[in-house]
Write a protein that binds this DNA or RNA. Sequence first.
DNA 1: CCTCCAGTGGGTCGATCGTCCCACTTGTTG
DNA 2: CAACAAGTGGGACGATCGACCCACTGGAGG
Lengths: 198, 198
Amino acid sequence: MPRIPASERRVALVLAAVQVIGRGGVSAATTRAIVAEAGMSLASFHYAFTSHDELMAEVVRWVIAEERGAILPDGIEIGSLEVVARAGLQRYFDLLRADPEREQAVNELALYALRTPDMQHLARQQYEGYHALAAAALTFAAEHTGSEWTRPVDEVARLLVALTDGLTLAWLVDRDDTAARQLIDNAAALVAGMAHTR
Amino acid sequence: MPRIPASERRVALVLAAVQVIGRGGVSAATTRAIVAEAGMSLASFHYAFTSHDELMAEVVRWVIAEERGAILPDGIEIGSLEVVARAGLQRYFDLLRADPEREQAVNELALYALRTPDMQHLARQQYEGYHALAAAALTFAAEHTGSEWTRPVDEVARLLVALTDGLTLAWLVDRDDTAARQLIDNAAALVAGMAHTR
DNA sequence: CCTCCAGTGGGTCGATCGTCCCACTTGTTG
DNA sequence: CAACAAGTGGGACGATCGACCCACTGGAGG
């Protein structure tokens, strides 16, 4: 094992933990399983982190930060609000299909954080981030399509996040692509229906 | 400890397990914690169940069966489709607020079942049940309000389940009652908008 | 070249996990 | 009343968990 500074060990261990959780769930993320995934020794782990709990908190923070960037649109979308909304949902769904275990890990981590008193605020930050992100995207989309929301954008954002969560859970369970596609279409139409041309 | 036949022990242990999971999550549902909750000895556990896994499978089955009955409307609802839809969502939300830990336990159990190869079909049955239940309720509501769905009822049902799951997750995280109320109102209006008078 | 010290490897600790075993008690059946 | 089966209690098993300790190694700075 080459010499690696503790700071790099930390990110390597976090990545390994995400991998392990994706493969076997939060309960499989034992210290030993994580260091095995990272190809380290137990001592290296406790040199970089003081405890397993500290690592898990870092994992939650990491996942939150990474999730935020993944959903944002790559470029400027054009078309009606419904087209924009569907494109956004479709992009998220592609992400979900590309790495289902990862998204399931995110869900499990959210519930895990809710269970852990010291991490509840992380779960809340996670969802505040989702809602703020959705609100920003919705505002942007409305502006560039010359329309405005008939309900406060925060409400529309919360609806969109709820639909996304519901879509995720349902697809993770039954892996029904066509049903997911139809749900995306319906959701996009409904969300677009909550705006009118300015 | 009085003498109790194994069949009664089984249901008592399942109930105890649900209690423990609600309080501390799936990871807290150790054999010892469960028998302590039920006030039994370890031997009694392994007399009623051959293994901890067998108990967990029974717990998942139990929760599925119980969840199904809890959501059904008590009586005939009257009013517009939107009023009916909102009443249904509100009734579920009241259930959620009354026992949040229980609903979180249900979510964790669903993810747990997805992780356990021998239980994946149970998770699928759970969601098939949800979708069928929602479809039946929607059909019933449309009939009694003299309207019909503009999309296949299965699609509307899936949308409704997704909204319910999203509502649950969001509220479990931030416990924002007013936001949940607004989400319910919006969801009811949107679902009702997917039907027209016959 | 020598001296530190960040970083490593391996072994070990006590706690807790699921499971098992066996002696014991209690109700039932003939 | 005797015999048997159903159910109970407590202790013990090996495995695994998170945490820790200590002897060591190797590269960077004097």
